[in-house]
Amino acid sequence: MDKQYATDFTIQEMIVVAGARTLPDNKVIFAGTGLPLVAITLAQLTHAPGIVPVFEAGAVGPSLSRGLPLSVGDSRTTNKANYLLGLNSAFELTQRGFADIGFIGGAEIDPYGNLNSTMMGAFPDNYQSPKTRLPGSGGASDMACSCEQTIIIMVHEPRRFNEKLNYVTSPGYLDGSPNARWNAGLVGQGPQRVITTKAILGFDDDTRRMKLIATLPGETVRSIQDATGFKLIIPDDVYAFEPPTVEEIHLIREVIDPKGYFVKKTIKN
């Protein structure tokens, strides 16, 4: 049977589909709150039933079939879990090498995949009186440091993509210099993909700067560069990402997040 593509979907639904499809099957994936939580649920229900989700509050390898967790620490994260202790045990797994992929969101990103989820404003001068105070690291910085790889998922807006961050919460490739992560004492390899509402992005092997990999439906290389506050590397083999299927959109709307907790029906741009 031919795949049926959805004609009516929001950019929030698109990003969840893109995030889910990027997750490989049979890997241990340490998922942060928000969009990663929805995308990992969609992946588990579609192409990747063998994903082993890990949640920082303690649950390892649950089946996400009791409804969408509203928190990475709530009751729905523990259904048929294979191991269940607490935060220390979960983060110890990442340092030991048991977490293949850390799947995290962020508010602001730079060309080297460093993320800010702490504050907007001048740092360090205005740290105690920020322009906008954000929730803080949570476990994202721990995942970015110690999971073997990181996948980042976030809304694509010019104000969120900046050459220099207000504050580095979660390390990516730091200043992009050779072996920057190793030299800083980090164990994980760093960010592999950035999934946004406009594009799939990766990082150049030599310079560690962000490069375009695929354009999401409705976007062009030009529209993506225009929405990015720094210059992207544009390789020759950029491709158009496959649109969401009717089945994927149905799962998000009717099964995974019917109340629109994480996947808003409309979002402000």
Binding site: E56, G86, L87, N88, F91, T118, M119, Y127, Q128, S129, P130, K131, T132, R133, P135, G136, S137, G138, G139, A140, S141, D142
Partner: peptide
């Protein structure tokens, strides 16, 4: 949190989840 932090009402020390747990 936005209200208190943006009005400088709190002394903040940022850590990660693992840091505070450890």
């Amino acid at each position: 949190f936005r209200y208190l932090a943006e009005n400088s009402k709190l002394e903040l020390e940022d850590w990660s989840n693992y840091n505070m747990s450890a």
